[in-house]
């Protein structure tokens, strides 16, 4: 018969006393130092075992016993649990130190974007259409104003573009709904909503008025965002990122807010740069299909970036930027025809 010294805590009250635990097969007896039996039976469970802490024995009436010997394991096989063994295992710890940053990096750059890309196609189309309707309503009431372009001119552009899009071999997920708006804050710009709404600002039309192909290229770029469902993918990815980081770094308190904020927006910026490149590729290959020169896209980027002030800072801000650098994009577009003329 083995016996162990420790402390017995009575059920439902704060009283406790020094006690001796005796074990006979599956039967346990707890005795006070006077020899009085405090608990006996076989209906007990062991508490969590943690490095450096004694493992409690929980009895069926709510009382418990804590052995003095911190390393004592009274479970059936007398061994520590798998979790405890891993937490004390030098190799497991070393491997964790190595794997945690690697896995976080992989999740940020591959796993979560991959998850978003896989999940989003299962969303019903009506979701995207509702987003468009609701968002346009809000945008029209806040940032956007009515277009100053004559209605006839709007119609003409629209027809020309829809005709071009109709010639693409791949049918589009959403029929583009092209809207012209005036935007004081945005300048020359265009953007797409998930359900196929593409907004073109008056400023952009004016800027590229004498380069119709460049304007078409911008439109195709936006259609690429719609086709690849980039808007919803970004949303799915940022939701997943926020939750995963919150679960992992929940103990960081103040620091976690900083990390959560900047960490997830850095990841998002990286994902969004990939998306811009994907949309660029869609636009340049569509231009080729339509028999246009893909450098039209380069013209558009050049014209827009000249308007904005971009300089030597570009390479420094790369990691914070949601778009690839203009130079990168222009080069990519110019390389496109070369790549496509190579024999297949």
């Amino acid at each position: 018969m083995q016996s162990y010294s420790g402390t017995y805590y009575f059920a439902g009250r704060s009283n406790c006393c020094a006690a001796l635990l005796q074990r006979q097969h599956q039967q346990l007896i707890v005795r006070s130092s006077e020899g009085e039996v405090l608990w006996q039976g076989s209906n007990f469970s062991t508490g969590l075992d943690l490095p450096g802490l004694a493992t409690e024995l929980h009895f069926d009436d709510g009382s418990y016993f804590v052995p003095d010997d911190v390393s004592l394991r009274l479970s059936v096989d007398g061994k520590a649990s798998l979790a405890t063994r891993l937490e004390q295992h030098k190799v497991a710890i070393g491997l964790s130190v190595l794997l945690v940053p690697l896995l976080l990096w992989w999740l940020a750059t591959r796993g979560l974007p991959g998850f978003a890309t896989a999940v989003v196609p299962y969303l019903p189309k009506s979701v995207s259409l509702t987003i468009d309707r609701q968002s346009m309503q809000i945008l029209d009431n806040t940032l956007l104003g009515n277009s100053a372009l004559p209605e006839a001119q709007q119609q003409q552009w629209r027809q020309q573009w829809l005709l071009a899009i109709a010639q693409l071999p791949e049918p589009l997920l959403f029929q583009p709904d092209i809207q012209f708006r005036q935007a004081k804050g945005m300048g020359a710009n265009a953007f797409a909503l998930p359900g196929g709404t593409i907004v073109v600002t008056d400023e952009l039309v004016t800027l590229l008025a004498d380069k119709p192909d460049a304007l078409l290229a911008v439109l195709l770029h936006e259609a690429g965002h719609v086709q690849h469902q980039h808007g919803l993918k970004l949303l799915a990815q940022s939701t997943a990122t926020t939750m995963l980081l919150a679960l992992i770094f929940s103990d960081l308190e103040v620091l976690s807010e900083v990390l959560l904020g900047s960490g997830s927006s850095l990841m998002q910026a990286a994902f969004s740069r990939d998306m811009e490149s994907e949309a660029d590729l869609f636009a340049t290959s569509a231009l080729l299909v339509l028999g246009k020169n893909s450098s039209a896209f380069a013209d558009a980027i050049e014209a827009i970036s000249q308007q904005q002030d971009s300089g030597s800072m570009e390479q420094w801000t790369r990691y914070f930027s949601s778009h690839p650098s203009s130079r990168e994009r222009i080069e990519q577009a110019k390389n496109q025809p070369a790549a496509s003329t190579t024999p297949r």
Binding site: L50, P51, A83, L86, E87, Q88, H89, A92, I93, L95, S96, V97, L99, V100, L103, L104, L107, M243, L244, L247, I248, S250
Partner: peptide, 20 residues
């Protein structure tokens, strides 16, 4: 505690947060 913490972070990531 470092051992406990880092192993638990790894298990949390591997199980996509369930182990948290």
């Amino acid at each position: 505690y470092f051992g406990i913490w880092i192993v638990n972070v790894l298990l949390t990531i591997v199980t996509l947060g369930i182990y948290s």
